[in-house]
Design a protein around this nucleic acid. Structure first.
Lengths: 96, 96
DNA sequence: CTCCTTTATGCGCATAAGCGCATATCCGGG
DNA sequence: CCCGGATATGCGCTTATGCGCATAAAGGAG
């Protein structure tokens, strides 16, 4: 199932979200959309995609939904995610 | 430029081609299309995409065009490619 | 029960992506 | 010069993808 995961990664909003989530903490949709600068429906839908691929998991907390990286990712997939996030960060540094 | 690379990887024919090319050897289009089971135009176009992202380079050799992995990939990108190919291989083993 | 905040989703639209078919191009051989 | 194998590309079609807008659903506060 590597292909759906690559598709999930190959979209700027989603990659951005994963970059943020890769701090290991939980983040609600409202925070992600604020930081990324996305509309609400757009952010929500992208998080659904990430959830369906198994890359992230969510948790209801009052009126918020907290997302975080799936801690039980298969090793191969985790390695891909890690390499991708690293590359995204490197790229960001060069831009700055 | 990680996003175009992820897009390039997120397509079965291209991922398959990269899996084959990851042996480090040169492979012509005719070989790739035969092994993968793709039509000629399809294979050719996908190789163009891979070439344009910089993942592979090509070389004219008589009437053939030999493709191989770009040996000068940035480290971050090479790490991503490596992780992805590994994951693809692992998946293939499970299927068998 | 009502209101407000947060999140999800139905809908229609615009664009991108992949495909096959036919054709052009490149190259070596005769 | 002509032919045949290998590769690239123009074209039109079909489907997938991302978006905004409006609305629904969920949950706390008063």
């Amino acid at each position: 199932m590597i292909l759906p995961i690559l598709s999930a990664l190959a979209e700027p909003t989603r990659l951005n979200a994963l970059r943020i989530l890769s701090d290991g903490e939980e983040h609600c949709v409202c925070e992600l959309m604020a930081v990324i600068g996305a509309t609400q429906s757009r952010m929500s839908r992208h998080m659904q995609v990430l959830k369906q691929t198994g890359l992230v998991i969510d948790r209801r907390d009052a009126q918020w939904v907290r997302y975080r990286l799936n801690p039980e990712l298969p090793k191969d997939i985790a390695a891909v995610l890690d390499a991708v996030v690293r590359a995204a960060r490197t790229e960001e540094r060069k831009a700055a």
